[in-house]
Amino acid sequence: MTELDRKAAELGIDLQVSLAGVTFSNPLMTASGTFSPHESSQFYDLSELGAAVTKGVSAEPWEGNPTPRIAETYGGMLNSVGLENKGADWYRNSELPFLEQYDTRIITNLAGHSVEDYVRVTEKLNACDAIDLFELNISCPNVSSGGMAFGTDPDMAAEVVRAVRKETDKPFIVKLTPNVTDITVIAQAVEDAGADAVSLINTLLGMAVDLRRKNAVLARKIGGFSGPAVKPVALRMVWETAKKVNIPVIGIGGINSGTDVVEFLAAGASAVGIGTASLMDPRAMVRIKSELIDYMQENGFSTIRQLKDAFDI
């Protein structure tokens, strides 16, 4: 038992949640692209995580975008990493065996430029028993073909979901982009096509200008905006989506405290993803988990269900 699970148990608090037929020791998940097993494990015990959501992996290695890829903005940041990764073979042989040592659920985020790409990476990793769920990234704003293009069109989103559904019996989550007129339309389309859950939001498209270099800060000019500043937008979209779909919603966007987690659960999320906070503080996952336990204790909640039911939004 981990240090924080012991703390919760001593207080009579059960953080367990289940979604898509899988139980999780707690509702805290890393957000894809802000977690790396070896590196993150230097800062906290990965068994504290409800789920380790790994960085987007493609069938073959991807180079990503030119640098600078990072810009700080007021209360948030921009990134244009572009899903640089070493490919599915490396993931299976190097990342997964390491992660398997920990007592946490493993969610593998999948990336592609085309329907065939998503199918291929699913094929390559489907036999890995260590993977509990897939998360289909159809919402990355930093790749020029595929990525977000699938997430902004309900028909294309449904097509890629159906194609992946045929390849795997593992439950999968579809990660949605906020860069659409109505995110609930996309959420319903992927639900109808067979997705087991949705996670939202991926980053908002944004930009920053470097007055000294007289150019955009990012080499790619535009990038994905994340961090505490996006929380109200994310909460609103999670609330709207949870009302419309019957599959679970994983809330992501600007979470940086235990009470932020509570807000997302209150708005209808079944679990939460925590991203930029781990850049701001490598121990954010365990700090936030501890704060959530404190909140539950102070407010007399012994289960996540009780906490959620206390809100009527």
Partner: peptide, 8 residues
């Protein structure tokens, strides 16, 4: 610390 891959 190697998680965001911003500085590659």
């Amino acid at each position: 610390y190697g998680v965001c891959v911003g500085c590659s």
